[in-house]
C-alpha cells in the first residue's frame, strides 16, 4: 500500500476508534437508564428509585398468581431466583402471561412494598418448539429440567 493510502487508512481507523470509545463511555455512564427494568434483587437492594414509576422484570413465581373473585385484579409474585416482588395489577393480562413466564411490569411501589402495576408486558425467550415436543418433554418430566436450564439470570 502506498504511504498516502496508508495514512488515510490510519486516519479512518483513528476516527472509528475515537467514536467507539466516546460511545462506549456514554453508554456505560447511562447503563442504568438503558436497562428496561429492575430485577427483584435490585429493588430489594434499593437500587431502584423510590416514589417514581419503575419497571420490574422477572419470572412469575409458580403458584403465586391470585385472582380476585369479582374484579380483574390479580396479585402475583415475580422472582429472579434470589428475591421476589409482589405485583398487583388490574386489567387484562397478555396472552403469554402464565406461571413461570418472564414478564415486565410498569408501576409504583407502595408503602407495603407491593408494586401496583398499570401495565404488564409478557417476555418470551429465544427458544421455539412445536407443541408435540413440549408434550413429550412434559411427559418424560424433562420440561422442568429444560426450563431451569435456560435460566433467567438477568
Amino acid at each position: 500500500m502506498n504511504p498516502v493510502r496508508k495514512k488515510r487508512l490510519y486516519i479512518v481507523l483513528a476516527i472509528l476508534a475515537g467514536v467507539g470509545i466516546a460511545v462506549a463511555l456514554a453508554l456505560s455512564a447511562l447503563q442504568q437508564n438503558i436497562n428496561l427494568f429492575y430485577t427483584p434483587t435490585q429493588i430489594a437492594r434499593g437500587e431502584a428509585p423510590e416514589g417514581t414509576r419503575i419497571r420490574a422484570g422477572g419470572l412469575v413465581e409458580e403458584g403465586s398468581v391470585k385472582r380476585d373473585r369479582d374484579s380483574l385484579s390479580v396479585d402475583f409474585r415475580v422472582t429472579d431466583g434470589a428475591e421476589t416482588v409482589t405485583i398487583r395489577f388490574q386489567g387484562i393480562l397478555p396472552d403469554l402471561f402464565r406461571e413461570g413466564q418472564g414478564i415486565v411490569a410498569l408501576g409504583r411501589v407502595n408503602e407495603e412494598g407491593i408494586m401496583v402495576a398499570d401495565e404488564v408486558l409478557a417476555k418470551h425467550d429465544e427458544n421455539y418448539m412445536p407443541p408435540e415436543v413440549t408434550q413429550a418433554l412434559e411427559q418424560s418430566g424433562m420440561m422442568k429440567h429444560y426450563e431451569d436450564g435456560k435460566g433467567y439470570s438477568k
Binding site: Q31, N35, L36, K123, H124, D125, E126
Partner: peptide, 8 residues
C-alpha cells in the same frame, strides 16, 4: 442490558 426483546 435488561430488554424486553429476547436474545438471538
Amino acid at each position: 442490558w435488561n430488554t424486553l426483546h429476547q436474545p438471538a
